[in-house]
């Protein structure tokens, strides 16, 4: 698995001997089962008919050219699209056996269980401590927030850098640190899944490497979905890759479509679909 990821930045996954069971690449233990997912903005069908399974404690990368709907799909998993006026979803996203878009489901609870990290680091203009403590506070956690905050910062590999200045403004941190703070903030709510929407696209290569290492570490405990436009990144960090593209239908309207979904090593070495191959090779030259 993931042989392409014999990269400079991250040790091979087998180096970890944590609680994560060795993966069998052939079988997939799904956390999410997506079937027939379409996303509409008003009358416009931005994404059409996506079927996808997300494996437990795996890293799944969503890649594809701009406008292929990969971010739109990502934002369905925690119902962030609900916040956009006119956005509507059809099809099913099962979280275990529960429909994320079911009538009785509270989107706030969905977002608590399924965290999200954004493209541009977006720490609150508050102290480092208050940023991490925000989620637990909002979700009614009482008692010793100090240990919750520390644990989250340790897991996000930021503790050593900020432990002496927890009261400092989060905005005094560098971009890469801010992004790790946002990851810590997400972890503090104790989600099971972390969605990452191009989390490194605003960062320099060193900060990017740190985040990628962190993702590998986090995958022992969390299921991670990452949207990236950086194919090397997808190859380096992910277990499985979903390739999306934009397709023009008979009436001349563009829709995002899922082209191919497989183990990352296979997508990058031996893709089944011609379009995947063209995209991969085109980028790698």
């Amino acid at each position: 698995m993931n042989t392409m990821a014999g990269s400079l930045s991250s040790p091979p996954k087998t180096a970890f001997d944590g609680p994560k069971a060795p993966r069998d690449p052939a079988s997939l233990d799904p956390v999410f089962t997506v079937s027939g997912l379409s996303v509409f903005y008003g009358d416009y069908e931005a994404v059409r008919g996506v079927d996808l399974n997300i494996g437990h404690r795996e890293i799944t990368a969503l890649i594809g050219p701009s406008g292929c709907g990969k971010s739109t799909v990502l934002r369905c998993f925690n119902r962030m699209n609900d916040l956009i006026a006119g956005a509507r979803v059809s099809g099913k996203i099962l979280y275990y056996d529960e429909d994320v878009y079911g009538d009785h489901v509270d989107p706030i609870e969905v977002r608590r269980r399924i965290g999200m990290v954004f493209q541009k680091p977006n720490p609150f203009p508050k102290s480092i401590f208050d940023n991490v403590a925000y989620g637990p506070r909002v979700n009614g956690v009482k008692g010793d927030l100090g240990s919750v905050v520390e644990e989250a910062l340790v897991k996000a590999a930021l503790w050593d850098e900020v432990k002496d200045k927890l009261k400092a403004s989060a905005l005094s941190l560098s971009g890469g640190q801010q992004q790790r703070l946002c990851i810590a903030r997400t972890i503090a709510v104790k989600p099971e899944v972390i969605l990452m929407d191009e989390p490194c696209s605003a960062l320099d290569p060193i900060a990017t490497t740190k985040i990628e290492d962190l993702m590998q570490e986090l995958a022992r405990e969390y299921t991670i979905l990452i949207v990236t436009h950086n194919m090397q990144q997808a190859a380096r960090v992910s277990d499985r890759t979903a390739f999306f593209t934009a397709e023009v239908d008979d009436t001349g309207v563009r829709h995002g479509r899922l082209v191919e979904f497989d183990e990352t090593s296979r997508i990058f070495t031996n893709p089944v679909d011609k379009r995947t191959e063209d995209y991969i090779t085109g980028r790698f030259g």
Partner: peptide
Amino acid sequence: GLREGAYALGSSRMTVALRVVLP
């Protein structure tokens, strides 16, 4: 982005307004 970050942590609309946007 601040609103999105707050919503993504499981905030209600009121919490976002009072604890993130207003401050």
